[in-house]
Amino acid sequence: MRQRFTPLWLLLPAAVVLGGLFLYPMYQLGLISVLDFRQAQVSGGQPTRFVGLDNYVQLFTDPQFWSVLLATVGFAAACVVATLAVGAGLAVLLTRISRVPRLLLSLAAMAAWAVPAVSGSTVWMFLFDTDLGFVNQLLGTEGFNWMYDRYSAFALVGAVVVWSSFPFVMVTLYAGIEAISRSVLEAAALDGASTWRTFWQIMVPMLRPVLAVVVIQSIIWDFKIFTQIYVMTRGGGLAGQNLTLNVYAYQQAFASSEYGLGSAIGVVMMLILLAVTVLYLRTLRRSGEPL
C-alpha cells in the first residue's frame, strides 16, 4: 500500500507549483468568463453578477469574431509552415557548411532571436515606412503603403514573425540532425539516396519527437501572436483587417475593462490550442512512433 502512495508524494512539489501557476489562473479565467465582470465590479462600484454563458453567446454571435478567428487560423498556419520550412532548411544547411559560415549564420539567427518583439517590429516598420522606408527607396516605390492591403500587411507581419521564430526551430532541428548517427546517413548516401530523399525518409522520421515539440511550440506561439500585429498594424490594421484573436481580445475586452468577455475569449483560445495539440500528438502516436 505504501508503495502506491510513493508516486503521489513525489509528484506533490510539482503539483503544487503547477497548480499554483496554471490550474488556479485557469480556474479564475473560467470563473470570470461566466460573470459580468468589468472595472466597476473590480473596484466594487457594482455587484458581480453570474451571467452564465452570456459572454460566450455575445462572442459567438459577433460576426467579427468568426472572421478574426478564420484570419488567425490562416495566419498562424502560414507562419508555422513558413517558420518550419525556413528553420529546417537552414538547419540542414548548417550541417553542410564549414565552420566560419556556420558560426556567422548561427550568430545572425541568434541575434534575430534575441531582439525583443517590440523593437524588432518597430525596426521592420522603419524599413517598410511608406515615405521614408529603406525598402521603398530601394524598390523605387515611395509612397507605397505596405499596410494598406490586407494581404501585404499580413505577409509583412508574417515575415517578421518567421524572422523572430525560425532560430528556435533551426537550432532545435540542427541539434536533432547532429544526433543522428553518421553511419545511417552514410549508408543512405552509399545506397545512392539524394539529399532530398535523405531528408524526407531518413532525417524526418528520426527527428519526429523533436519535430513534434517544434511544431506544437510554433502553433502555440503563432496562434497567440500579439506584439507584431499590435505594433506593426497599429492595433489591427486598417478598419481592423489585420486583427488576430489575441489583439481582438485585448481591444474588445481588456482595453475596455470587459474582463468577463476577455476571459471567454481566453477560454476559447485555450480550448482550440488544446484540441490542436491533442490531435497532433494522437496522429503522431497512431503513426507508430513512440514519443
Binding site: 490550474l23 480556474y27 479564475q28 470563473l31 460573470l35 473590480v42 473596484s43 466594487g44 462600484g45
Partner: peptide, 12 residues
C-alpha cells in the same frame, strides 16, 4: 478548495 475563491472585489 479552489471554488472557495471568487475573483477579488474591493469594498469602497
Amino acid at each position: 478548495t479552489l471554488t472557495a475563491c471568487a475573483p477579488s472585489t474591493s469594498t469602497p
